[in-house]
Design a protein around this nucleic acid. Structure first.
Length: 445
RNA sequence: UCCUCAGUAGCUCAAUGGUAGAGCAUUCGGCUGUUAACCGAAGGGUUGUAGGUUCGAAUCCUACCUGAGGAGCCA
């Protein structure tokens, strides 16, 4: 004699929208938020957002209990809910899949008294920045942040795959790297001052002498009152440093890494670049070799193109644009005047008035994304430079030690992640390249 | 820090010295395939703040506040 068990409907599998294609013709449940709702009498089209994508759903009045249909019909933007139903391939739906809703669980209905502020229409920069915590839910911001993720992953994969060890450097530092004017100050217990790092480089050099090839990747802080589309006060920088490397090797690595990163983004983030309306043919041209100019040649070139620049000064705002517009790939400019570079920059042995430094300038007007070069490894010269720059020698004792105990030629570079993201995504401003940008006059949200 | 521009409904904007308006959003009504859906209706305003000019100011003037773009500086 058999006992019949009471029939229970099988619990539908919970999936994400990104996996919808694998579950066509299955009944599933998807938790998410209401992105938008279109309705037409007895049929409503809720569009669900779950962080992995968008899914159009369909609910018919005749096929659902009255209260379920009514609750959907009056649901407000960004209300949180779980939808259940059968997935179907549907050419008319954006994304190509659609769910026939059979059940809905509303987790929270956003009140119409205080509706979601970011509507599907256009908004201004100030409003969006004030609502950055909500703005991140939009398609465009998803695309940018995902490309950023891909860039960071590619950068790490590049260095991890080329014998570099990740050795992160401190955020709190006791003294300035290159001067004290640009640093954020913090109280470090009792009466001591600490500063937020503006570069991991000096510590990177110690790490390179310990491990050979290292990189650090973390946030850096600059208290400069720069108010332009290229500046944040808090930004992320990846900085490789290599023992036994000369300027040519540093340039080779910088070029190879940039090409690798762009390639990886093109390979894995086509959809996101499409959302951003990025002209990918411009990125596809980022191949070896990058044009190499000396500072001397760059100055001559700029003067021919009408710039006021004189030998001995740094590039002005328009200068980088004039230079990069002439090429389709990033360009490398090296051997800047020693006087405009940091104290640790190695002079060219045959021409000490120029330094063995290099900048990589991105095309399309994006400008400097990488700065680096060979560091001074001669102890006498380093001491002299510290004096010339009026830096407190005691603060650099440990740095000078690196030249006393087995000094070797070495160098590296730093790449600003946000500028790199802005370039690859084709953005107007770096403020969209990080979830919560910190800028002059903007600390919130 | 300096220069330029801008602040009008929740949002995006119009109104160029003479009665503050539209689209979106919200609410109500209509519509069974919508694609930033559409159609009809309703509510929604100390025109950034303070002062001044004028019969009359969103509009002209002054100061301040807020924001945006840029310069210098930088990745």
């Amino acid at each position: 004699m058999s006992v019949s068990k009471p029939w229970k409907p099988p619990m539908p599998e919970r999936i994400t929208i990104a996996d919808a294609a694998k579950h066509v013709d299955e009944v599933v449940e998807i938790p998410g938020w209401l992105y938008n709702l279109r309705k037409s009498g007895k049929i409503v089209f809720p569009i669900l957002r779950d962080g992995t994508g968008l899914l159009q759903c369909v609910a018919l009045k005749n096929e659902l209990p009255e209260e379920v249909f009514e609750s959907l019909k009056h649901l407000t933007q960004e209300s949180s809910l779980i939808v259940r139903g059968k997935l179907r391939a549907e050419a008319r739906a954006p994304g190509g899949f659609e769910m026939d809703i059979s059940g809905v669980e509303i987790l929270q209905r956003v009140s119409e008294e205080d509706p979601y502020p970011i509507t599907p229409k256009e908004h201004g920069v100030e409003f969006l920045m004030d609502h950055r915590h909500l703005w991140l839910r939009s398609q465009r911001q998803h695309a940018i942040i995902r490309v950023r993720h891909a860039i960071i992953k590619a950068v790490r994969d590049y260095f991890d795959g080329h014998g570099f060890t990740l050795v992160d450097t401190p955020i709190f530092t006791p003294a300035a790297c290159e001067g004290t004017t640009t640093l954020f100050e913090a109280n470090y217990f009792d009466d001591e001052k600490a500063y937020l790092t503006q570069s991991g480089q000096l510590y990177n050099e110690a790490n390179a002498m310990a491990f050979g090839k290292v990189y650090c990747f973390g946030p850096t802080f600059r208290a400069e009152k720069s108010k332009t589309r290229r500046h944040l006060t808090e930004f992320w920088m990846v900085e490789p440093e290599m023992a036994f490397a000369d300027l040519e090797e540093i340039k080779r690595v910088a070029e190879e890494m940039v090409i690798y990163v762009v390639g990886r983004v093109l390979e894995s983030k086509r959809e996101e670049l499409k959302v951003l309306e990025r002209d990918v043919t411009k990125l596809e041209k980022v191949t070896s070799p990058f044009p190499r100019l000396s500072y001397d040649e760059a100055v001559k070139n700029l003067q021919q193109h009408g710039s006021e620049i004189q030998w001995g000064s740094d590039f002005g705002g328009g200068d980088e644009t004039i230079l990069t517009q002439q090429f389709e790939t990033p360009i490398m400019v090296d051997r800047f005047p020693t006087v405009i570079k940091a104290f640790y920059m190695a002079p060219d042995p045959v021409r000490p008035e120029v330094a063995l430094g290099v900048d990589v300038l991105a095309p399309e007007g994006y400008g400097e994304i990488i700065g680096g070069g060979q560091r001074i490894h001669d102890p006498e010269l380093l001491l002299r430079r510290i004096e010339e720059h009026n830096l407190p020698k005691e603060a650099f004792d440990w740095y000078i030690d690196l030249r006393k105990y087995g000094t070797v030629p070495h160098g590296g570079f730093g790449m600003g992640i946000e500028r790199c993201v802005a370039w690859i995504c084709g953005l107007e401003h770096v403020r969209e390249t990080i979830a919560f940008p910190r800028m002059l006059y903007r600390l919130r949200p």
